[in-house]
Computed example of a mutant assay.
Amino acid sequence: MTGPNGLGDLMRDPDETIRRMDDWAAGFAAKAERYQAAQEKTERLRLTATSSDGAVKVTVGADGTVTDLTFSNKVKSFPLDELSRQILTTMRRAQSGIADRVAGVMAEQLGDEDRETRGALLDSLRGRFPGPDEPDEQAPAAPGPVPPSPTGGAGVPPAPAAPQASPPPRRPAASDDENNNPW
């Protein structure tokens, strides 16, 4: 590497070495600013979904946490299991848009920079927040109708057949994460 613009040239011309180092540092600082802007914009993202009947409305942040939950008067007549199902379904619908919204922020703030890093991040988000019609590994299957109890009464759920494995630990809540960084 002793040809033009090689290490030998830099060693002979300290001013050129300093200029190149300054250029590298300026480029690194600009990249850090772009990433900081992307992080700040991502932290402000909010995605909202409403149940098909308008009874439940859920808003989530880019990290998937629920930031707002509202109900219409319709929920007063819902059985609790139906209300729970609608909340979870609507929350998952809101969360399913996270990866696309984060991808948009990254494209806007970073352009084509660091495609591999971006791809890994977005793949991770898509794995954590699948589309609303995709199976969710952490969601239990919807229970079928409740059979009558041995005494003839309906609505008493049977005892569980066997304990189920605990879901994997979730990421700490935003208030526990000092950086509040979804990446």
Rank of each mutant, 00 (worst) to 15 (best):
E113H: 13
D100Q: 15
T59L: 04
A161W: 00
S175L: 01
L88E: 12
S96V: 03
A26H: 09
I87Y: 03
A120L: 10
D13R: 14
F78L: 07
Q39G: 03
T17D: 01
D22T: 14
G119T: 12
E113Y: 13
Q109S: 10
G155L: 10
P147Y: 10
E116L: 07
D100H: 11
A29E: 10
V58G: 08
A161V: 14
K57L: 03
P160N: 09
R85A: 15
A139G: 02
R20F: 00
P160T: 05
I98D: 04
I87N: 00
T17A: 15
D112L: 04
S51Y: 08
A120F: 04
S96T: 05
L83N: 07
P167F: 06
D100N: 14
D68R: 13
R118Q: 12
L121K: 04
G144Q: 09
M91W: 06
P150H: 09
T50I: 11
E16F: 01
L121W: 14
P163D: 09
P140A: 10
V60Q: 01
P14Q: 14
D53I: 07
A174M: 03
Q86L: 13
G111Y: 07
D15G: 13
T70D: 06
E108F: 02
S124R: 15
P79W: 00
A32K: 12
D13L: 08
N73H: 11
R34E: 03
